[in-house]
């Protein structure tokens, strides 16, 4: 019985490996073609490049102003996520520790908004955002991400804080800290695991988000990576070699992030899915 199952494992390994090759193949093709000249791409997609031309990357870097675009994506992601964490943790803390009808109502209101899809909000959002002068501005889109990030963050913080024993904060209060002191010195450090989960979920979402920047950031200087890399897929697109270089450059940051943070990402995503 055991023996038969062990014999099956090499076959399983071969099947899964072949599948992995198939899954990885599109990424390989993208990478390979980003080194080719236009003629090489047109004559054969599957062939290897005659030489590794880095020229495509230089051209794309200049045409897209990739350095600036990358910085936009980075600033938007970091400031948005930091803001979401700083706004949500204190609110969730009060909802748990001062559970009156006010807390109950506010928490339920925020929680139930998780059901609302972005596409229901986007038309009036553009209207509200232009009234508040948040359109086509990086601080503006960051503020919008704060709003959209709050519900999930408050929900996950709320669940986690409930499991922290109250005695720890009470000890801090007796030691002469105020509520704020107890929160910042005692509670906040304890929230680290859930903070990591939230930060990872929100970073991936904001970094890869396409629709919100598409409708709110119109000028070239404010573009994010997903928006900028779609330039080569416009109506008159035929510069496949540049397009592939652009997609490679667009994918590298998130793949590097994934490789270094793999364990955290997988844990975060599992926790987020199971609780969310």
């Amino acid at each position: 019985m055991h023996k038969r199952e062990n014999q099956r494992k090499p076959i399983l390994f071969i099947i899964l490996s072949l599948l992995a090759v198939v899954v990885f193949f599109p990424l390989y093709i993208t990478l390979v073609n980003s080194f080719k000249s236009y003629n090489e791409v047109v004559s054969s997609v599957a062939a290897l490049p005659s030489a590794f031309h880095f020229g495509n990357f230089a051209t794309v870097w200049k045409q897209l102003n990739f350095g600036g675009v990358f910085m936009n994506s980075l600033i938007i992601t970091i400031v948005s996520v930091a803001g979401i964490l700083m706004i949500s943790a204190p609110a969730a803390y009060q909802f748990v520790r001062r559970p009156g009808w006010v807390s109950q109502c506010l928490f339920l209101l925020i929680l139930s908004s998780l059901v609302i899809p972005f596409q229901t909000l986007m038309i009036p959002l553009v209207k509200v955002a232009s009234e508040l002068r948040l359109m086509d501005s990086i601080p503006g889109i960051i503020i919008m991400y704060w709003g959209f990030g709050i519900p999930l963050a408050v929900f996950l913080y709320h669940g986690f804080i409930k499991s922290i024993p109250r005695e720890l904060e009470e000890a801090a209060l007796i030691d002469g800290n105020g509520i704020a002191g107890a929160f910042f010195r005692v509670v906040l450090p304890l929230l680290k695991p859930v903070t990591t989960t939230i930060a990872i979920l929100q970073s991936l979402w904001i970094w890869n988000d396409f629709l919100l920047p598409l409708i709110t950031l119109s000028s070239k200087k404010n573009q994010t990576i997903p928006i900028a890399s779609s330039v080569y897929f416009g109506q008159y697109m035929n510069e496949w070699h540049l397009a592939m270089a652009a997609l490679t450059m667009a994918s590298i940051p998130v793949i590097v992030f994934f490789v270094f943070m793999q364990r955290n990402i997988i844990e975060g995503i599992t926790a987020g899915a199971v609780k969310g």
Partner: peptide
Amino acid sequence: FVAPAIIFFALVILVPFLR
């Protein structure tokens, strides 16, 4: 502690939803 969350939530989700 609570007001910032409520303000941004209202601005970005609640008001657009009602609208």
